[in-house]
Design a protein around this nucleic acid. Structure first.
Lengths: 205, 205
DNA sequence: GTTGACATTGACCGCGCGATCAATGACGTT
DNA sequence: AACGTCATTGATCGCGCGGTCAATGTCAAC
């Protein structure tokens, strides 16, 4: 039954939502024009009407995904609540790895794109940008951490520290997705806390 | 020209080598019976003669890959050379992230399998096993680290510490593959060293 | 020299893919 | 009421895939 129904951008949204549903269920390889069309209850031709090619749909889905995952790195309340920079950084790490299990489907899809990016320059570019933005969102606090203990962090750049922290969280994401049942946030944070524990300043000042 | 040529297990080896060459060039999605056959200079039918299905070939390639990557976590000389457990752990971390750039193709392929594992139980099982073995290879030293500073690592299990270290290295692997030009081992190690620096024990004992 | 076991080939099948497009219906305009 | 625009459909095309198999070449055994 052809005809006019949702002439707006709504259709693009519908299709992207359907594409995500399929991707979450069957992976990127499962995202075909027909599977998306079926999920969105439209004909396959309409997918090509709104997204000229499947590749274009995948790129749009990647943007859609990145807009609402991971890089939502707003520091917000945390920055003001906690005085000690190192504690603040740890709080951010905790927040980000705590929400990994909830975001599992999207993180899984992100890694699927990550692999795609190793062959597809456009995807790689987009993902690099997202990871850079994530790292940069840690930069301000990294700077404060470095400045809070200059002799300890001599030779360490804020960018380097932010990169290490980002890499650590990405490693957590891998583990959280691969085996959520064994991923224990508290054990992680306890270990991390012990590792980066400041020299106890009791007998100093 | 049919006939007998290499009746041994040699052919399986040849095919696996060809499959890896294709996978390194085009990703797992590029590994098809025809592409592998062409790479190995044989007919496509022979691929199915030695590996009943493509899935079986992929599983065999995964085993082949894991045998010669990453989990080659032998501690060897390092364990005896360095006295301080924490320093020893750092030396192992350095060794493992130093060789990441060299192993890039294989690490890339590993992540390709990792994604495949999110949909394929057999692959997931194999990968989990490899990652567990890797983590366990860090376990002995993790134990020594924990024991070397009991009050600092109170509440931290050796397994938890080994997991955190493994996760960190996996995060490094992600970054090293995605953008090798920006992956700087020295910066990483410097940052890590500063982070886990022991409280200077000058005024204690 | 003949035979039998078997490695090897490549044509072939059915399928699902991305993409195209003529046909069709719904709607705003007049 | 007639028209034009355009969203929408689904049949259709060509392709490359996994997998099958009859035919064939090669070799060891006798």
């Amino acid at each position: 039954m052809p005809g006019r129904k949702a002439p707006e951008e709504q259709r693009r949204h519908d299709i992207l939502r359907a594409a995500f549903a399929v991707a979450a269920r069957s992976g990127l390889a499962g995202v075909t024009a027909r599977s998306v069309a079926t999920e969105a209850r439209i004909s396959s031709g309409l997918v090509f009407f709104y997204f000229k090619t499947i590749d274009a749909l995948l790129i749009a889905l990647l943007d859609w995904l990145l807009e609402r995952t991971i890089v939502a790195g707003e520091v917000r309340g945390l920055a003001v609540t906690i005085a000690d920079p190192a504690e603040r950084m740890l709080a951010i790490v905790r927040r980000d790895i705590e929400r990994l299990p909830r975001q599992r489907a999207r993180v899984e899809l992100f890694f699927d794109y990550w692999v795609l990016g190793t062959r597809n320059p456009a995807v790689r570019q987009t993902i690099r940008g997202a990871l850079d933005r994530y790292r940069d969102s840690l930069l301000v606090i990294a700077q404060q951490v470095v400045e809070s203990a200059p002799q300890r962090f001599a030779g360490v750049t804020p960018l380097g520290l932010a990169g290490v922290v980002a890499g650590f969280i990405e490693g957590c994401a891998l583990q959280a997705v691969m085996d959520p049942s064994r991923f224990d946030v508290e054990q992680y944070m306890a270990t991390l806390g012990a590792l980066v524990a400041h020299p106890v300043p009791t007998h100093v000042s």
